[in-house]
């Protein structure tokens, strides 16, 4: 079990500030909160773009255009729509978890 536990004061911003003060290394500030949130949003943006490309674009929107291209013995759009996109989805979530772990540590907001 992790030891850290700031008192759970929901519906107030205090736990965010309290978290920043831990260890006295870094001060928590609105600018820092903003920077952390922007990093998170950028990561979400990149991953959801990939999410859209493998499922909607390669699987469905370009379904007829990519029908002639093969992956293994299957048409490429068919493979993405019935196999490939699902594999990529799983990878995307774990990549998000790993990168957020690093960002949380960098901003000292990890649990």
């Amino acid at each position: 079990m992790t030891k850290l536990a700031t008192p759970p004061k929901k519906s107030s911003g205090k736990d965010a500030q309290g978290g920043g003060r831990r260890g006295g290394r870094q001060e928590w500030s609105p600018e820092k909160a903003n920077a952390y949130w922007k990093r998170n949003l950028r990561l979400i943006g990149v991953l959801l773009t990939i999410w859209f490309v493998v499922s909607y674009l390669l699987g469905l929107i370009l379904a007829n255009a990519l029908y002639g291209v093969r992956i293994g013995q299957l048409p490429m759009s068919f493979w993405f729509a019935q196999q490939g996109a699902i594999f990529v989805f799983v990878i995307l979530i774990f990549v998000y978890c790993w990168l957020m772990d690093r960002i949380d540590k960098e901003f000292d907001v990890h649990e």
Binding site: P8, D15, E111
Partner: peptide, 17 residues
Amino acid sequence: IQELVESVRIPRGAQVV
């Protein structure tokens, strides 16, 4: 409420003592 939104965006503090 704006502070609540700020707070849910940051992981630390979710654990209960």
